[in-house]
Simulated scan of single mutants.
Amino acid sequence: MGSRRVALKPHADKIRRWVEEGRGDEWIAQELNTTPSSVQSFRSRNSIYRRDPVRRGELSEHRAVLREIEGGILIETDAAGSEVFEQRWREYLKRSPAEVHLVITRDRIYVEKAH
């Protein structure tokens, strides 16, 4: 694996396709002769996100800020302004706020309705 600086912008379409196919940053880095951290940074800057194939339903991605509070962590986000939240979540949370599961992966936090 090379450590030289490789311009990734010309490869954006390939990177997007590879991510959609489930290829990891290590695999992409090897293909493009760069480092996995460069690939991850490029994906982040260009909003190229991995979709977790286990998750179902409509996805709405939002940046979040985690704040430590007494007894836990507060997740601050603008998700409440999204169309998915308006159509799928607002009424549900009013009726059943306890029926929500948080699924935490290495780089995502999913909110799911309990089954």
Rank of each mutant, 00 (worst) to 15 (best):
L66A: 14
Q87K: 12
R56S: 12
V111T: 10
P53C: 03
V54T: 11
L102W: 12
Q87S: 11
G81V: 03
L102F: 15
R106V: 13
A79I: 09
G72P: 00
G22T: 06
Y49I: 01
W27F: 09
R51G: 00
I75Q: 04
V84G: 03
A98N: 12
P97W: 02
V103A: 08
P97Y: 02
R90M: 11
V100A: 09
E86S: 12
E20Y: 02
E91S: 13
R56C: 05
P53R: 07
K9Q: 07
R5W: 08
W27S: 05
E20F: 03
P36N: 13
G2R: 05
A7K: 15
S37P: 04
E83A: 09
R16A: 05
M1R: 11
P97C: 02
E112P: 00
G71M: 14
K113L: 06
E86T: 11
E26F: 06
R23N: 06
V19T: 03
G24L: 08
I109Y: 07
P97R: 03
R108S: 07
W89Y: 04
L102H: 13
H115K: 11
S96P: 07
S3L: 13
P97T: 01
P36K: 08
F85E: 01
S44E: 05
E21Y: 14
V54N: 11
S47N: 15
R106M: 03
A7W: 05
S96M: 08
I73D: 08
F42G: 00
W18T: 00
H101W: 10
I28K: 01
H115I: 10
T77Y: 01
S47V: 07
V39Y: 01
A29I: 02
N46H: 10
A64S: 04
R43K: 15
R45P: 04
L59D: 09
R45C: 12
R88E: 12
R45G: 10
L66R: 10
G57L: 08
G72R: 14
A12T: 15
R88P: 00
R95C: 09
S38N: 14
E20T: 05
H115Y: 09
D78N: 07
E112G: 02
G22Y: 03
E112M: 08
L66P: 15
S3N: 12
D25P: 03
S37F: 06
G71L: 15
R88A: 04
F85T: 01
N33K: 11
P10D: 11
L93G: 01
D107E: 14
A80M: 14
E112C: 04
V103H: 10
A7P: 04
A80L: 11
V100F: 09
R23I: 02
G24Q: 07
A98G: 11
H115T: 13
N46Q: 15
M1F: 11
S37L: 12
I75R: 04
A79E: 03
H115F: 07
V65R: 08
A29Q: 01
W89V: 01
D107T: 14
R90H: 13
S82N: 08
E58D: 15
G22S: 07
A29P: 02
I28H: 02
V65W: 03
G22I: 06
E21G: 11
P97H: 02
A64Y: 06
S38Y: 08
D13Q: 04
V100M: 15
I48A: 01
S96Q: 10
D107P: 09
K14S: 07
R43H: 08
F42H: 00
I73W: 15
R67L: 12
E20H: 02
